[in-house]
């Protein structure tokens, strides 16, 4: 591929300044340098619902929250074998994200598939944060190459390997795509809008199922037939 024709590529710190983030446009490609930590429903429940103190100094050490469980092993001697890393779908974490910003001061939320522009406007924009999406999904081997080591593993006993808080040393780790900017615009929503314009034509030659389902109507008295 002719890289000059592709998206703009940028190196970004995991403790970025507001100016760094203001320069990013949705659709840009980013590689990260610095510490990055994983936190998903297990960590969010402990921190946001049970009020447990965070096991690291955030956002001083890292402002980059990765929605991820790495394919990694803790060896008998306590060392780590890091395999592939890939994000998990972020929309499921919407209920905790506001409180998480308050506790963590995160500036980068990294995950799969983005969140809604409503979430961006309500939670991301006031906190000066943006969303980076992984690519593919499943450039796990490329992302794994960008991890130079495991600095710490917190809350493993309580949460298990998949939900524990992994603190990873990133160097030129990527690619990620800028999904939301400081104004709360969403790349995915922009793309969906463009695709939707074509859908009526694609659906020509189809017809609705003779037996409908709840969800296709919200009227629970509907018999769903015909």
């Amino acid at each position: 591929m002719d890289r000059s024709a592709g998206p703009k590529r940028i190196r970004l710190s995991t403790t970025p300044s507001r100016e760094d983030l203001a320069r990013l446009r949705i659709g840009d490609v980013v590689h990260l340098d610095g510490l990055i930590y994983t936190a998903r429903e297990g960590v969010y429940m402990r921190a946001c619902e049970q009020g447990d103190a965070l096991p690291m100094d955030l956002p001083h050490e890292s402002a980059a929250n990765f929605h991820c469980s790495p394919a990694a092993t803790v060896e008998a001697d306590g060392s780590f074998t890091m395999g592939a890393v890939t994000a998990t779908a972020s929309f499921r974490f919407s209920k905790w994200i506001g409180e998480w910003f308050r506790l963590s001061g995160a500036k980068l939320i990294i995950g799969k598939g983005g969140m809604t522009s409503a979430d961006y406007r309500e939670h991301f924009v006031p906190n000066g944060a943006i969303y980076l999406t992984t690519v593919g999904y499943g450039t796990g081997a490329l992302l794994g190459r960008g991890i130079k080591g495991v600095k710490a593993l917190h809350w493993r006993e309580d949460l298990g390997l998949a939900q524990a808080m992994w603190v990873l040393e990133a160097e030129n780790m990527g690619p990620f795509i800028v999904e939301s900017d400081l104004e709360g615009n969403s790349l995915f929503e922009r793309e969906n809008e463009r695709i939707s314009q074509n859908l009526a034509r694609v659906y020509e030659g189809t017809k609705p199922a003779v037996l409908r389902r709840f969800g296709e109507t919200d009227d629970r008295s509907d018999e769903l037939i015909g």
Partner: peptide, 17 residues
């Protein structure tokens, strides 16, 4: 590129295996 990296490094293609 990712498939090549996986084979070169003998690392899983995707983190969600």
């Amino acid at each position: 590129e990712n498939y090549e990296a996986a084979k070169e490094d003998r690392r899983a293609m995707c983190g969600d295996t």
